[in-house]
């Protein structure tokens, strides 16, 4: 017994230090990546970035058309994904909680949640680009909607599952029909939770690049009409980061900083929202 003890203690210390080292390793990447973004992108942040168009090399340009394109396509994505996701999540949590089809849909939704986004891009290309014969902002928005829907379905269902059944029973006992119980009692109880899901979905859509390459394609002109090809921030980062011209590379970094700040702000807001809800209970 006495011989075993030092060995066990040593092993414990070694593994403990390895766990510390793993954590330091993981955190250092976050610091390195965020540091590089600020170092290269912060200097480029100026009014020009938000007021000028992307320009050919040699001409001072900004990112206005890409920012507007990103906003429009995210709005299209959200306009489709939010109602679709909330209603589907409602079915899974309220009407069909124990139905066999609900188990299948839940499973499929979980698969969609982590399906490769490039495959979603190919699907929308086949579905929205080929039939109309050209790339469009609508196709890009629909591709983003396919990415965002499963996130909203999942959070809506999880949140509605937290609503105590006594609340539903009380409302039903007063004679409210099912749909009113859901809309006026259940939704109201989990409003901040559903908002969390929507914010997370917006964050995800803001950073997506792969599904836009061959749906929205990108556009160096200022367009607000989603019927034609459209630029977006991730697409312009993809293009300019591989450009040999320093001014375009600089804009790519500035764009990257803007995207990252937007995504992280959205996800932190979502986290705060859901945490404050937890405190209420």
């Amino acid at each position: 017994m006495a011989d075993l003890y030092p060995g066990r203690k040593r092993r414990n210390i070694v593994w403990t230090w390895l766990a510390y080292a793993a954590t330091a390793f993981g955190l250092s990447w976050l610091v390195l990546i965020l540091g590089a973004l600020f170092w290269n992108g912060f200097g480029g942040l100026s009014l020009d970035v938000f007021t000028k168009m992307t320009a050919p090399p040699g001409v001072a340009g900004g990112l206005l058309n890409s920012i507007v394109g990103s906003l429009i396509q995210t709005a299209i994505g959200l306009a489709i994904a939010a109602p679709l996701g909330i209603l589907a999540g409602t079915y899974l949590a309220e009407y069909g909680r124990y139905a066999r089809i609900a188990y299948v849909i839940r499973f499929i939704n979980d698969i969609l949640l982590s399906a490769p986004s490039i495959v979603v891009g190919l699907f929308i290309y086949q579905f929205c680009v080929v039939p109309f014969g050209h790339f469009s902002g609508y196709a890009g928005g629909i591709a983003l909607a396919v990415i965002a829907t499963p996130i909203i379905v999942r959070t809506t269902e999880d949140m509605l599952n937290l609503v105590p059944n006594t609340l539903r029973e009380a409302a039903s006992a007063l004679g409210m029909p099912r749909s009113l119980v859901i809309r006026h009692v259940a939704y109201r109880a989990v409003r901040s939770g559903i908002m969390t899901g929507i914010l997370l979905a917006i964050a995800r859509m803001t950073g997506e690049t792969a599904p836009l390459i061959f749906t929205a394609l990108g556009n160096s002109l200022f367009v607000v009409d989603p019927r034609g090809p459209m630029s977006s921030l991730p697409l312009i980062i993809y293009e300019f980061a591989r450009s040999p011209y320093p001014e375009q590379q600089k804009l790519a970094w500035t764009g990257a900083l803007i995207v990252t700040l937007a995504v992280l702000t959205l996800s932190i807001t979502a986290r705060v929202l859901s945490a404050s809800r937890g405190a209420d209970k």
Partner: peptide, 21 residues
């Protein structure tokens, strides 16, 4: 939360960081 932020960074950012650094 910091580790989760690492998951939140879009993959294009990993790309540009990867190629420059």
């Amino acid at each position: 939360v910091a580790i989760e932020l690492l998951a939140g960074i879009p993959s294009i950012i990993y790309g540009i960081w990867g190629v420059y650094y």
